[in-house]
Amino acid sequence: MTIERTDIEKLAELARIELNEATIAETTQSIADVLALVDQLQAADTEGVEPMAHPTDAVQRLRADEVTETNHREAFQAIAPATEAGLYLVPKVID
């Protein structure tokens, strides 16, 4: 599978990472190298093999639907880049 500059641009948009114009060719090449490594998987015979999501096939543990956490808003917001009146501030989204 070949990967083009336009693919990398699309992925960068999906992943919300601004690409550096100067290194985009290098980035494309190194990702192509990784995908070439990964393509070795295609040779494996996996007919009828159940995909494995968890090493010991454990299932999600359930707990009683009870409030166990206390409010830590002040501690959490003390380390935020910008807050106001208990809210996180980001650039304006809607006019």
Binding site: V38, L41, Q42, A44, T46, V49, E50, P51, M52, A53
Partner: peptide, 12 residues
């Protein structure tokens, strides 16, 4: 082609 395949190989 990738993720599901990798998870199958993981089981092998």
């Amino acid at each position: 082609a990738y993720y599901r395949k990798a998870q199958q190989v993981r089981r092998l």
